[in-house]
Amino acid sequence: MFTTFAELSTPLVADACVRLGVPLRAAPPGIGAVVPGHRLAGRALPARHYGSVDIFLEAFTAARPGDVLVIDNGGRQDEACVGDLLALEARAAGLAGVVIWGLHRDTPELVEIDLPVFSYGRLAPGPTRLTDREPDALSGARFGSHRVTGEDVVFGDDDGVLFVPADRAEAVLGMARTIGEIEREQARRIRAGESLRRQTSFDDYLTRRAADPGYTFRQHLRRIGGAVEE
């Protein structure tokens, strides 16, 4: 999974989801890598946090190599729920990374550990609360407005984090590769002096739109085989 995604990006995966009609589920804006440039891809390992790290340690007992721990901390801004020890344990369990709907701490240590961790940002205080755990705390996690389960895969890079149904991931990655190839060729042609307007027959589009106001640029791109937006 990671090998395939290494040549792609989350924008390409997002466009592929739209092209294929796969529900587009993105982490909220602001979720980013502790270390810029870090990337991750793997099966989701969900866990809802209630104030104690034991929920994560329990999740690791069912982890498979390459999984990504998806932590639901409700987007809280008053506590950091992941630090260096949890990251070390995640790496020892074979995980590909951690994504947090919330905050992290121990930033210098996380940088040194070099396991991809994505969160809203850093905060010194850890949890002081301990709330009751729900029975399904390890079967699903909320991340923004989305529910993530073990039937999903996670993709993350400098543009954010996406969640894709595992049974559609191969098709999505294939489409993302196709879109990426088209965009790279378009970029090459722009650098060579051929404008994007010329490549996309933009004058023809304007003429068609004048005759048919319902004719959209997306329809036009489909007709000519271009890729700029979905």
Rank of each mutant, 00 (worst) to 15 (best):
3 T>H: 14
6 A>S: 15
17 C>G: 08
25 R>S: 14
27 A>F: 11
28 P>W: 00
31 I>N: 03
31 I>K: 04
32 G>C: 14
36 P>D: 07
36 P>N: 06
38 H>D: 15
41 A>C: 15
43 R>K: 13
46 P>A: 07
50 Y>G: 09
53 V>F: 13
53 V>W: 10
54 D>E: 13
56 F>Y: 15
60 F>W: 06
62 A>N: 06
74 G>I: 05
74 G>V: 05
83 G>N: 12
86 L>C: 11
89 E>M: 11
92 A>V: 10
93 A>G: 04
94 G>Q: 10
109 E>R: 14
109 E>Y: 04
112 E>G: 04
112 E>H: 11
118 F>I: 10
121 G>T: 06
126 G>Y: 08
137 A>L: 03
140 G>C: 05
143 F>Q: 07
151 E>M: 04
152 D>W: 04
154 V>Q: 04
155 F>V: 05
156 G>I: 13
158 D>H: 01
158 D>W: 02
160 G>I: 08
162 L>K: 11
163 F>W: 01
165 P>H: 06
166 A>V: 12
168 R>F: 02
174 G>Y: 03
176 A>Q: 10
177 R>M: 07
185 E>K: 13
189 R>M: 03
195 S>R: 08
199 Q>A: 06
201 S>G: 11
203 D>Q: 12
205 Y>A: 10
206 L>Q: 13
207 T>H: 07
216 T>I: 05
219 Q>E: 15
221 L>K: 06
227 A>G: 03
228 V>K: 04
229 E>V: 10
